[in-house]
Simulated assay, not measured.
Amino acid sequence: MKKGVLLVNLGSPDSTSPKDVKKYLGEFLMDERVIDVPLWARTLLVKGIVLNTRPKKSAAAYQKIWWDEGSPLIVLSKRLRDKIDDHTSIPIVLSMRYGTPNIKSGLQELHDQGVDEVLIFPLYPQFAMATTETILVLAEELRKEHFPEMQFTSVPAFYNHPDYIRVLAESISEKLKAVEFQHLLFSYHGVPERHIRKSDITKSHCQIDGSCCQTASPAHQFCYRHQCFETTRLVAEYLELKENTYSVSFQSRLGFDPWLQPYTDRTIERFGKQGMKNLAIVTPAFVSDCLETLEEIAMEGEEIFHEVGGEKFTVVPCLNDREDWVKVLSRWIDEWAFSNPVEA
């Protein structure tokens, strides 16, 4: 069998025009694993409300961070793909869960190269319904319908893999070694609390309290909240960060249902009001810089901090196409390609 890899990231609008942003948001928000309510309610919310109000505002946000080459997330993902391709001997194809290039076209590209054994590689360190799960579910649906001869293997969440922790920690160290900061905030993308409970394979462990994420359980294999806190703990341990000099928050909430807390924007505001002058922030749920890191954090977050008296606001870039990150991913792919499992 011929092996190949499908790297999958979130996606982006084709341009900053409200029309393209509306198309992208429609595909994204109508995913039942993103807004997990009955179809009628999701349709009413997304098509009846959100898509009539949000595209113009989101388009303006994308315009702030758009590069000459296009969407930063797409450009950076392509650079990563190209560098991995230089390090490996099997086909490497990039797809997006939403927008273009889509997963179907990616699988078709691999198929056209004679690939019949595919490593599905979601570019998300932590597992979540709205990220990893939706990629794997769609890929399997497409396989059954269009590529029944293909076999799939998927990369598990690598939030605690020593290679990932080392590269993430080194990226933080490099950015902050010449910067004075009082606190390092680990900001992860938020999800509704109900997603955590739905992903609990024990149906009883996840209480979203102060103890369940620290208590060993099979539920942690699919618990986004636990995996975020564990990533933070391992990086802090690697960097020998002192207690109370770092913390976790969650960004990008939508709607009125309870989402994972504390919220990043309110945390930044609180730190400033408490007199903190120098704050650093890292976003480990993302491996590629995007709207949520470049605009929501680096622009809006800094504005909030300055408005309440903060002075120095330092943002650690995502891993993007760092050479050490490229080497790690290339090695994981080669381990799989030559029959050695990639273990988290």
Rank of each mutant, 00 (worst) to 15 (best):
E117I: 11
K83W: 03
M129I: 07
G26C: 10
A41C: 11
K56V: 15
P38E: 12
K104G: 02
Y62E: 00
K22W: 02
R42N: 07
S58F: 03
P101M: 03
R143P: 05
A130P: 04
S95I: 01
D86N: 15
E69W: 12
R81T: 10
S17M: 09
T53G: 05
R42M: 10
D85K: 15
Q108L: 10
L80W: 03
Y98T: 01
Y24F: 11
P72K: 04
D85A: 15
D82H: 14
K57E: 13
V5F: 03
L44P: 06
N52H: 13
Q126E: 06
V46G: 02
V37S: 10
I84M: 01
K22C: 08
V5R: 00
R54G: 07
L123N: 03
L25F: 01
T88R: 06
I135Q: 02
R42L: 06
G4S: 08
D31R: 08
E141L: 05
H87C: 14
L138S: 11
P122W: 00
P55Y: 05
M30F: 12
L136M: 13
K83N: 11
I135Y: 08
S95C: 04
S89M: 13
I103L: 13
P55V: 06
N9W: 02
S15I: 01
W66C: 09
E27V: 14
V93G: 03
V118F: 03
L29V: 12
I135W: 02
K19Y: 15
L39Q: 14
D85R: 14
W66N: 03
E69P: 09
R54W: 04
T88H: 07
V50A: 11
G26Y: 09
G48W: 00
T43P: 05
T131W: 01
Y98K: 04
A128C: 09
L110R: 00
I90F: 13
R81N: 11
V46I: 09
L25Q: 08
D116V: 15
